[in-house]
């Protein structure tokens, strides 16, 4: 048996053929998400690629045009009343009553839930504010909050009760470096407690640091998904070689299934870069052995994995314009 509320496959979030149409536009197109238990799942995609729309459907805020959603082992939106108390969410930025204080706002959202015990409400609100570093500004009206303070309050709202799943739509938007670091360590500690965290973000470096899994959306379609290491491995591997014997080296690399690029001249010789699909590339030590055996004088050698950013751009395109 897996943990309670999970499906047999151990998925916390599972969608099948999830589709959302706005008029003629297909904002989310046939998406099959699979978020495993306990994962920190990065949900990536350019602006307008359908991340927030997907999250709205996961949380039962919007109805799917087609497809099914299951969250914590229950179909949504049918299981909404059992699922949502176990989910903390930040959807498309924080939103509060500007005329109420931070504390009063959290009290209101907690009172809205049928599951927040009133007896512990005060303590839970204070603890959540403490956790995001807002204790000192708790009594201030929210209209006097800065962008980052509102963002922190939004995260505090997601943490009002113990949660099994956190859905955070761009949690670090507007945060200062300290705040960003805090969110990172918060996500790690939530994951360490056994919660599943679903984070949408544009900040790839950040996703690389905290996520175990990721999915990439492009124009409403899911173009890649899986454990982070696998995603990166699916990209190309690049080797960088410094040698005075460029000609021989090229032949060896070609024989090993790599595609050498044009070299650049440096004082110590020529720098050659060669690219190969990660799956077909020989282990680095074999490449070096091959080069040395062929009499190539290797003065420098390194292997560079494609970054998540390279992979992201490769999958979603270079263009800056927002897809229609």
């Amino acid at each position: 048996m897996t943990a309670p509320g999970s499906t047999a496959a151990g998925l916390t979030i599972e969608t099948q053929g999830l589709t959302k149409r706005f008029g003629h536009q297909v904002a989310v197109d046939n998406v099959d998400l699979a978020v495993p238990h306990g994962a920190v799942f990065g949900f990536l995609g350019p602006n307008g690629s359908g991340k927030t729309t997907t999250i709205r459907m996961l949380l039962g805020l919007a109805a799917a045009s087609a497809g099914t959603v299951s969250v914590l082992g229950q179909p949504m939106p049918q299981g909404l009343h059992e699922v949502l108390p176990r989910v903390g969410a930040l959807v498309e930025g924080p939103a509060f009553y500007p005329f109420l204080s931070g504390t009063a706002n959290l009290h209101r959202f907690d009172a809205a839930s049928r599951h927040g015990p009133p007896a512990t409400r005060k303590a839970r609100v204070a603890a959540a504010l403490e956790r995001v570093g807002l204790s000192h500004a708790a009594g201030k009206r929210v209209h006097a909050y800065s962008l980052g303070m509102k963002q922190r309050l939004g995260i505090a709202n997601a943490l009002l009760s113990p949660r099994d799943l956190l859905v955070l739509d761009e949690p670090t938007n507007g945060l200062d470096p300290q705040g960003t670091r805090e969110v990172r360590s918060l996500v790690r500690s939530l994951a360490a407690d056994g919660a599943t965290v679903f984070v949408s973000s544009h900040l790839l470096a950040e996703v690389e640091q905290i996520c175990t899994h990721a999915a990439i959306m492009s124009a409403g379609k899911l173009v890649a998904q899986g454990p982070l290491a696998e995603l990166r491995q699916a990209g190309d591997t690049r080797i960088r070689l410094l040698t005075p014997d460029a000609g021989t080296a090229c032949e060896v690399l070609l024989r090993l299934g790599m595609t050498p690029g044009k070299g650049t001249h440096e004082p110590d010789g020529e720098v050659l870069t060669a690219v190969a699909a990660a799956s077909s590339v020989a282990p680095p030590e074999d490449i070096v052995a091959g080069l040395v055996a062929a009499g190539v004088r290797v003065r420098g050698f390194s292997v560079e994995r494609e970054s998540l950013e390279d992979r992201f751009v490769a999958l979603t395109g270079e263009g800056f314009d927002v897809a229609q």
């Binding site: 709205r56 039962g60 949502l84 969410a89 959807v91 939103a95 009553y97 809205a112 839930s113 049928r114």
Partner: peptide, 16 residues
Amino acid sequence: LGTLRYLLVAPAGRVR
């Protein structure tokens, strides 16, 4: 205000 989405994911329940 946008608070409707947070009330509903609390979850307040639409009818309630």
